[in-house]
């Protein structure tokens, strides 16, 4: 499973870098809104890590949160 993923990832990366340069369709001077701190997926890492941990220990689902968590399964 992991090997297959790795292959997929690698081929994506190679494929991407082999392409001719793509003209960025959102110009650097048009990124004011995207760069606004309120647009961050993880504005306060200490808070996101904590809340991910709260859910992690009470739900079977795990992973793909893109943030950080911790690990005690206290009932």
């Amino acid at each position: 499973m992991r090997a297959r993923l790795l292959l997929l990832g690698l081929s994506l990366a190679i494929g991407a870098s082999a392409c001719s340069p793509i003209e960025p369709w959102v110009k650097p001077y048009e990124r004011e809104n995207i760069a606004d701190p309120i647009m961050a997926f993880n504005r306060d890492p200490i808070s996101q890590a904590y809340i991910d941990h709260v859910y992690e220990v009470r739900e079977a689902a795990r992973g793909a949160t893109g943030g950080s968590g911790g690990g005690c399964g206290c009932n």
Binding site: D44, I46, S47, Y50, I51, V54
Partner: peptide, 8 residues
Amino acid sequence: SVLQIFFS
């Protein structure tokens, strides 16, 4: 209930 208070 889940409470967080933080200073940054």
